[in-house]
Amino acid sequence: MNGPWHKRASSCIAFLMMVLWVFSSAPPRALALNGEDVEYPAKLAFLYNFAKFIEWPPGSYRSPNSPLVICIAGHDPFSAGTENELRTRTALGHAIEIRVFLATDTSSICSMVFIPVTERDQADNILRGLKGSNTLTVGEIEGFAARGGMINLTVEGNRLHFEINRLAAERAGFKISSKLFNLAKIVLDDERR
């Protein structure tokens, strides 16, 4: 039934090679950025990039030293490690602060609100509450930008993408760098709603 011995031997060698490769230790700096493990660290890095490439409306900061506050609504999907790392950075001269978004927060405290997919049923309420504030709204919920959210993170074909509702952001006075516009999918308000 079996082929000549060398065929089986080659199969075994191939198998062993793969075993060796999988178990061999990678060079310490060869950081692999893959799998689900990377989704939320990457999304947090997106938020940081938004902070760097978006200009807040005048008067958003009480003083030039005020921090940029990122508020997370509901269950926080980010790990403490990545959040702490981000706290050591600055964006356009502002230190970064990360805190929980409370249902009572309506304005002024949060520079940016991130609404995780677990809070998708609350998204409309949160957006309504933030209307007229200087808060950048970022979601990861299907249709979030079309429903009036400013930026929405999406996963397409296993890659992260983002949508910008240009009108919503500009109505609130945000100036978004053309670099972001070039990479984003521009979304209009869903007028049927």
């Binding site: 990377v38 890659r159 992260l160």
Partner: peptide, 11 residues
């Protein structure tokens, strides 16, 4: 952002 957009995500 370009680098972040090239990462592979699984859910």
């Amino acid at each position: 952002i370009e680098e972040l957009m090239s990462l592979r995500i699984e859910s």
